[in-house]
Amino acid sequence: MESRPVTVKDKAILEDRAKDKAVLRRSLFRSDATQKILAFASLIVMFVVFSLASPNFAKFNNIIGILLATAVNGVLAVGVTFVIITGGIDLSVGTVMTFASVMTGVFITFWKLPIIIGVLGGVAAGALCGFINGSITAKMKIPPFIATLGMMMIAKGLSLVISGTRPIYFIDTPVFSKIAMGSVLGIPNAVLVFFGAAIIASLILTKTVLGRYTFALGSNEEAARLSGINVDAWKIAIYTLGGIFSGLAGVMMASRLNSAQPALGQGYELEAIAAVVIGGTSLSGGEGTILGTVIGAFIMSVLTNGLRILSIPQEWQTVVIGVIVIAAVYADIIRRRGQ
């Protein structure tokens, strides 16, 4: 960079930058202890209540069922957390997940490639979609809502085209289903992968430059740009990271169903976003945690499972979940106001 005399404008920018840093630091520190405790407490309360209500709820098999039901949505939600913290949104996570699972099917079942290549290929397919999302948003300046809405449709259509609109089965490669459904000490691998992914995501978000810039973009993108951050490049990186998680979710989904289901996926983005929001990540960007998202994902699945176990009519299950989403976000707003 060329050196030039410091002007008034520069000073203002520097001050702004300092302010933003302070804001950033504060948002990192007030890192939602209250919200997390509240969300976690709600989760525990739900768990206790359902256990009291039905002897079948707290059984090992049912708990495993809940964990499995959380795994895929959880991985999606963890990925989209990054994007939401930047103040963006990714509506394509569900169908990109499907696209990744179809590509895994193509690699393993159609092309007979080794399973590891299929898995990596699936994740790479997700990463590619994320990369395109990021590029469209950053370089073409198309709002993420629109860019990812387009990607949602593209991925959905391509999944159908590539698979020939039929599910691709992994019948010839029985090992593939072990990726999600094999188990260690009775805990299915899908669940372990989910926890592993969440821990890695949490480390990325809190300990790396990528994580810091994720918050910086969400707090004040302009300030980030002025303080010399290559906003476009980091944005692309963050969307790509989100895509990697969608790809991973796709591999998990394919392994769990022992098939790539090309028509699946739409609507999953909203569940993932709901989990993120319940977990205290603000849709306006700048704050959020992975732990919150994980708890949010569990709240959704414990609730769904518990209501099913209690034989609550399905129509009412949906109503209750909707109420909880609103209540959770309202609790978050109140917490913010209190500060």
Binding site: N56, F57, N61, L68, R256, L257, A263, G265, G267
Partner: peptide, 20 residues
């Protein structure tokens, strides 16, 4: 909710089985 949600149906089946 939709006939493509194969995994949701599996979760429902799982919960139903838990009820013995």
């Amino acid at each position: 909710e939709s006939e493509s949600q194969v995994d949701k149906q599996i979760d429902m089946l799982q919960a139903a089985l838990s009820k013995k």
